[in-house]
């Protein structure tokens, strides 16, 4: 095995022919050269971002409109639980939307131009089930959602079936049910993560280990 001969031979291996395209040809629509496809990709990405922004604004506007609408009905005097649960629910939805946006932005922000070791470290962070910060963000979102929905479920939906003396028991029962649903959600998410992401995380960690510093005893 002669390294230098092989290197020389290897240098003759070239990339397959591919139409790169020029600024002129790429200006037209529907070109199948590389530049045209890359431009199309940029346009797709911009359109996707625009769509997401519009959807986010529509959802936020809808929530604000619903809240203001309920709060401004003159024939139905506002009372504390309704205002409270609407406010907390609104805060919960806005918070969840923010948390999802944060997550998606982090996922989309893969920097392929960084050194391999940093790339693997970042990939590891993306594939970990939940980081401490994710637990805080998720628990806060679930807490807001639970607090916002509790008065609605217990106070508005169940009040025709339960008396005021059972109100506290209903709140506790609802709390337990909510925690159970959240725990099941977490369990299913973890199970899916173990099936899909854990093997990839193991691969990333193996690669990271393979890059670890070792004593230079064999270097010549």
């Amino acid at each position: 095995m002669e390294w230098n001969d092989l290197k020389n031979e290897l240098g003759k291996v070239g990339a397959p022919d591919m139409r790169l395209g020029s600024a002129d040809s790429a200006a037209g629509c529907g070109g199948d050269d590389l530049i045209s496809r890359l431009r199309a990709r940029d346009a797709e990405e911009a359109a996707r971002l625009k769509q997401a922004r519009i959807l986010f604004c529509v959802a936020a506007g809808f929530m604000a409109f619903a809240f203001l609408g309920i709060a401004s009905i003159p024939s139905q005097p506002l009372y504390a639980p309704r205002v409270l649960h609407q406010g907390v629910l609104l805060a919960a939805f806005v918070y969840i939307a923010w948390a999802l946006r944060r997550k998606l932005r982090n996922l989309a922000k893969v920097d392929y131009a960084q050194p391999v070791r940093s790339f693997l470290e970042q990939a590891e962070q993306r594939y970990i089930f939940m980081r401490p910060a994710d637990y805080v963000v998720t628990l806060l979102g679930l807490l807001l959602l639970g607090l916002g929905s509790a008065p609605y479920v217990v106070g508005l939906l169940l009040r025709r079936y339960i008396g005021p003396e059972q109100y506290l028991a209903a709140v506790v029962l609802y709390g337990l049910f909510y925690v159970l649903v959240c725990a099941m959600g977490l369990w299913f998410t973890r199970r899916d993560w173990e099936r899909d992401k854990l093997p990839l995380l193991a691969d990333i960690r193996r690669m990271k280990d393979a890059l670890k510093e070792e004593p230079a005893d064999e270097a010549s």
Partner: peptide
């Protein structure tokens, strides 16, 4: 810079293929 992108893409690509195979 180009080699960083190439190598990171290759490493990421192997993981993606593995996920598709799964």
């Amino acid at each position: 810079w180009v080699f960083r992108i190439t190598v990171n893409t290759c490493l990421g690509y192997l993981r993606t293929r593995r996920r598709q195979q799964n």
